[in-house]
């Protein structure tokens, strides 16, 4: 495969938080929920990102200003060109999760792939059982995709968690895993879908385990440094698994031990 990207135009830009913007990019690459693509700016570099919408016309790229590429991207406007190649990797395994009840928990920009999955669920509602969604953000000013969250609140059992919040009781306050602990979860025929910092996914997994959802029913979306996206460069290896090819969505029972090995001192 080639590492040459093709040009794509930014259709619109929306600012959600101080360091997070949503770029709508016209592209035909059509990633499935959980898949990713390499977005690049010539002269700066590439950055693996996931779309937070599921549709065939454009990609919705939720960008947190945290590196060279995203920093430059942040200054781009409607009509500017970026470069894109993909889609890559395995997204959510519909064979495994369709027909199930789902608990979706994600934090910060980690909501992107999960939001794309929610899009898919909305479009194929009858294929899924009960849906419970928890999104966590630092505080009110960091709430992302607020407009879509309003819509989802009407359709699903949706909880918005804020780490810090002093105002009226509009949100649940506390860390996402702690709020998840308070929720009643029906473990029967239920899968957990998690995306966010590993520490958050870990404690959310512990909660899901405690109500009887086993690791082989829990999906983690992994962040690693993916450069080639073709299983060549070796950078995203989690032991023998390429995040770019075998992931970025992994069933937790498959990667649990590998992650523990890698992070051992």
């Amino acid at each position: 495969m080639t590492y040459e990207p093709s040009e794509a135009k930014i259709i619109s830009v929306k600012k959600y938080a101080e360091d997070v913007k949503l770029f709508k990019v016209k592209t035909k690459i059509n990633p499935l929920p959980g898949q990713f693509f390499q977005l690049s700016i010539l002269g700066i570099g590439e950055c693996p990102l996931a779309s937070c919408s599921y549709n065939k016309k454009y990609a919705d790229v939720l960008v947190k200003n945290s590196g060279s590429v995203t920093n430059t991207l942040f200054n781009l406007k409607k009509g500017d060109g970026v470069f894109i190649r993909g889609p890559y990797g395995r997204g959510y395994n519909f064979k495994e999760i369709e027909g199930k009840n789902l608990v979706l928990a994600a934090g910060g920009t980690g909501i992107a792939p999960v939001a794309s999955l929610i899009d898919y669920i909305e479009q194929n509602r009858k294929n899924f059982g009960e849906i419970k969604i928890l999104f966590g953000f630092k505080d009110e000013s960091f709430i992302l995709l607020g407009d879509r969250i309003e819509r989802w609140k009407k359709k699903f059992d949706f909880t918005l968690c804020l780490d810090k919040y002093a105002g009226k009781l509009k949100y649940e306050v506390g860390l996402l895993p702690d709020i998840l602990k308070k929720k009643k979860i029906n473990s029967e025929n239920t899968c957990g879908v998690l995306c966010g910092p590993e520490i958050m996914m870990k404690s959310a997994t512990a909660k899901l385990n405690s109500v009887g959802i086993k690791n082989d029913k829990i999906y983690w979306n992994m962040e690693r440094r993916m450069e080639c996206a073709a299983g060549s460069c070796g950078r995203c290896l989690i032991q023998d698994l390429y995040t770019c090819k075998d992931g970025p969505v992994f069933r937790y029972d498959i990667i649990k031990e590998k992650l523990e090995n890698e992070s051992a001192k």
């Binding site: 010539l42 590439e46 450069e227 460069c233 950078r235």
Partner: peptide, 16 residues
């Protein structure tokens, strides 16, 4: 065979 993909830029010439 591990590698890195990088951009090398000549800002003054807008090329790279």
């Amino acid at each position: 065979n591990c590698f890195d993909i990088q951009d090398v830029k000549e800002l003054s010439e807008n090329s790279g």
